[in-house]
């Protein structure tokens, strides 16, 4: 699985209220509508700046805060290809795997806003085309990789009817 796009850079501790505010998320299940408000409190123009496949790149503890699955779903529906961060909060991490949003854990200090990136999930590498640097990325444990490659937990249950990692 190969992903390419431009970096949109954020700092540490980007919480789920910043990703999609509570004042929007309780109103609707229309994720295309919610996607317009992604990252609104950190960058009001974020949604209009994204080209399909671009990456959110951040520091530590990305996705901390509430358990709202609207956070990864709104990111997916804003056409973000993957989230790259130094570390993730655990509920957000699970929600991304379950909804099929690729997560990349690596040293993001070597990535700047606007850099063009190429991510190869099979090889476990991130190539920064702007700086020419290759950054290694942490591999996903097999259980999570299986759910993600089957297209998320809904698809996993549709296929197996329950959890199946044999």
């Amino acid at each position: 699985m190969k992903l390419t796009g431009k970096c949109h850079k954020f700092g540490n501790d980007v919480n789920t209220d910043y990703i999609i505010s509570g004042r929007h998320k309780f109103k609707t299940l229309d994720m295309k509508e919610l996607a317009k408000y992604v990252m609104e409190d950190l960058d009001p123009d974020f949604y209009s700046k994204v080209n399909a496949g671009d990456f959110i790149v951040a520091g530590t503890n990305f996705g901390c805060g509430s358990s709202r699955e609207q956070a990864p779903l709104a990111i997916i529906n804003a056409n973000i290809g993957a989230v790259v961060a130094k570390s993730f909060a655990r509920i957000f991490y699970r929600n991304c795997i379950n909804t099929g949003l690729p997560l990349i854990e690596c040293d993001t200090d070597q990535i700047n806003a606007g850099d063009e990136l190429e991510i190869n999930l099979d090889e476990g590498t991130l190539f920064n085309k702007t700086t020419g640097k290759v950054i290694s990325i942490a591999p996903l444990p097999p259980v999570m990789l299986k759910i993600l490659t089957e297209g998320g937990l809904v698809e996993h249950f549709k296929k197996h009817g329950t959890f199946n990692f044999d």
Partner: peptide
């Protein structure tokens, strides 16, 4: 522990969940 909506759905269907 807190989970998201898809984990919740899997939990109410199967009575199970995967944990690290």
């Amino acid at each position: 522990t807190g989970v998201g909506s898809t984990d919740l759905a899997a939990g109410i269907i199967s009575g199970k969940l995967w944990f690290k």
